[in-house]
Amino acid sequence: MTNSEHYKDEQNNEIEILQSIYPSEFTEHSTDPHKFSLKIPIEEEDIRPCTLILGVEYTAHYPDELPEFTIELVDDDTLPAAGETDAVLESKDLTDIHSKLQTMYESNLGMAMVFGMATDLKEIAGQLLADKTKELKRQKDARLQKEIEADRAKFVGTLVTRENFLQWKERFQAEMALKNATLADSSAEDSKSSAARRLGTKAAAGGRLTGRQLFEQDKSLAASDSSYFADGDASVDTREFARAK
């Protein structure tokens, strides 16, 4: 048996084993060279399920060298949209997983390795999703805690210390001093206005004297009446009128 036939025989044997292990997940794309894919469901607890496709192509000297392989994420329209804490695998995640598998299996040359790669792919992807989900939940809990603390702060007053009490006292005394000064100025203005009103009232009253007051204050009025008397006019005593009543 030539080396080429030896490699073909080992590859055919592994294909038969994979088809028996993954009867519905195995899809053959070509036989020369062998090219196939395995559907790997990721359904760990507490994570959003997903499905990966491990594509494999044997090289001429497989298993003495690594096969060509790819990792793809199946776009499953039957799944609900990812929630706030539902982790999903991104392109960078798939690249990292591919690098990790390649490093791991470079030390396993010489033996059939596709089954092991499929098993490790499922485990690594599941653990990555679990870690990402845990981090998303932690972020959500931290955000909710901040919101709760902010709501509580609305109903909690400032803690009184000696320092902030003295600051408040100083501000209060300054405000009261300003208020008292304003009230004093207002009271003084009111007093001035009241005095002016009283003076104005007195002046107004003094400018409107009664006839008797005018007569008593100005004696010339009595003398001026005498010019209307002629010689022989009799003087009238008003007391006579009073007695006649």
Results as ranks from 00 to 15, higher is better:
Ala188Gln: 08
Pro80Gly: 07
Phe165Tyr: 11
Ser30Asn: 14
Ser4Gly: 06
Ser4Cys: 06
Leu128Pro: 01
Leu38His: 01
Leu144Arg: 12
Leu136Cys: 08
Ala87Arg: 07
Ala230Ser: 10
Phe165Val: 00
Thr161Ser: 13
Ser235Cys: 08
Ile40Ala: 01
Ala195Lys: 06
Arg138Ile: 11
Asp86Phe: 07
Ser91Trp: 10
Pro80Phe: 13
Ala142Arg: 11
Leu221Gln: 13
Thr70Cys: 05
Thr31Asp: 13
Gln139Leu: 14
Ala87Tyr: 03
Asp77Val: 05
Phe215Gln: 12
Leu79Gln: 13
Thr95Lys: 11
Ala142Pro: 01
Asp231Ile: 10
Glu72Val: 09
Met1Gly: 12
Gln173Glu: 12
Asn3Glu: 12
His29Pro: 00
Glu163Tyr: 03
Asp233Cys: 05
Asn108Leu: 01
Lys8Leu: 05
Asp225Val: 07
Gln127Phe: 04
Gly110Met: 06
Leu54Cys: 06
Glu43Lys: 15
Ser220His: 10
His34Phe: 11
Glu44Leu: 04
Gly232Thr: 05
Phe172Thr: 11
Thr78Ser: 12
Leu18His: 03
Asp86Ala: 12
Gly55Tyr: 09
Asp93Gly: 04
His34Leu: 10
Thr85Asp: 02
Ala204Val: 04
Arg208Asn: 15
Ser99Gly: 15
Val156Asp: 09
Ala204Leu: 07
Leu38Met: 08
Ser30Ala: 13
Leu221Cys: 00
Glu240Pro: 00
Arg208Lys: 13
Asp9Ala: 05
Thr70Leu: 08
Ala60Pro: 02
Ile97Met: 07
Ile97Ala: 03
Leu79Lys: 10
Asp96Gln: 12
Cys50Ser: 10
Lys202Ser: 04
Thr161Phe: 07
Arg143Glu: 15
Ser193Asp: 09
Ser235Glu: 06
